[in-house]
């Protein structure tokens, strides 16, 4: 019987042109890079640990922490446009591993870097999956700021367990799935050196609608219908901007974490799309 995948036994490090990238790896075959959100305390393991086993049956799967998330570089500083910086880190990561081209997944703020890489270096990107991207502009129908924003901001100012619990109640609709997510996020938010490094990557954020019409790669956009953190109507804006897009919405109360809340169905959907 194969050994179970853990955060520890899948942890790897790469030198992406001087930037230390911490990632998790499992499986063989075509490369798939899953880029985690850069929100406060978000990590690749926390975001995609319910997907790694299934994905690794079909792909050489890497769950990646952009600096300063997880155990990635806490020293590197950048004030250049943020997506350009992240896209370069991703490209340098591919170079460091000798990967010519990979499929990519990006969740929430992790989607922008993936899309920017695809716009700047299309030859390095195969198929793309993005989950509830931030940076797609104002909701047409949700009063702004969106409900989750206040809780996320409060946790950012005062990173207590109580504040985090409030954030997760907004983001994950199924209570039984919250506890482990809360523990991982709390530990990451309080990891040595992390809070001090939060301001390192500080450049301006470009709106995704500026450039995603140049991303020709086949793209699957996924969203939860009951997302209180990033308004779901933006999914349609993304779909219309991207030449080769399709959109999958999870109903039945699915919140901001379809990859986590609906892991089995999500895994099958993504694997099938990437192997088309």
């Amino acid at each position: 019987m194969a050994m179970a995948l853990t955060a520890e036994n899948t942890s790897r490090y790469a030198d992406a042109n001087g930037v230390r990238v911490h990632y998790h790896e499992a499986g063989e075959g075509s490369p798939l890079v899953c880029v985690a959100a850069t929100a406060f305390g978000a990590t690749a393991w926390g975001q995609n640990r319910r997907n790694l086993h299934a994905l690794s049956q079909r792909f050489r799967t890497m769950l990646l922490n952009l600096p300063p998330q997880g155990d990635s570089d806490k020293q590197v500083k950048s004030s250049e446009p943020r997506l350009d910086f992240y896209a370069r880190v991703l490209r340098d990561f591919l170079d460091a591993l000798g990967i010519e081209r990979a499929h990519f997944y990006g969740g929430s703020p992790g989607a922008g870097p993936v899309l920017k890489l695809a716009a700047l270096h299309p030859e390095r990107v195969g198929r793309i999956v993005i989950d509830a991207p931030t940076g797609l502009g104002k909701s047409l129908f949700n009063p702004m700021p969106v409900e989750g924003a206040a809780y996320t901001a409060a946790f950012g100012r005062d990173p207590t367990m109580e504040r985090l619990r409030e954030v997760m109640e907004i983001q994950i609709s199924r209570p039984e799935l919250r506890e482990e997510a809360i523990e991982l996020r709390y530990a990451a938010a309080h990891a040595p050196g992390y809070q001090e490094a939060r301001g390192n990557i500080s450049g301006p954020m470009e709106g995704l609608l500026n450039f995603i019409n140049r991303v020709a790669a086949p793209t699957l956009i996924i969203w939860g219908a009951a997302d209180r953190d990033v308004p779901m109507d933006r999914a349609l804006a993304a779909m219309w901007e991207m030449p080769n897009a399709r959109l999958h919405l999870f109903g039945a109360g699915c919140g901001h974490w379809p990859q986590y809340e609906r892991a089995d169905e999500w895994n099958r959907l993504v694997i099938r799309f990437l192997t088309d």
Partner: peptide, 28 residues
């Protein structure tokens, strides 16, 4: 289909609000 001229894709919104055990797939 996003480009449905017969029954426009806004129909998805009604279903999203009302059908309990739903998932939706739209091709641009």
């Amino acid at each position: 289909g996003g480009q449905d001229w017969m029954v426009p894709v806004e129909g998805v919104l009604r279903a999203m609000g009302e059908i309990p055990n739903l998932r939706v797939h739209i091709w641009r």
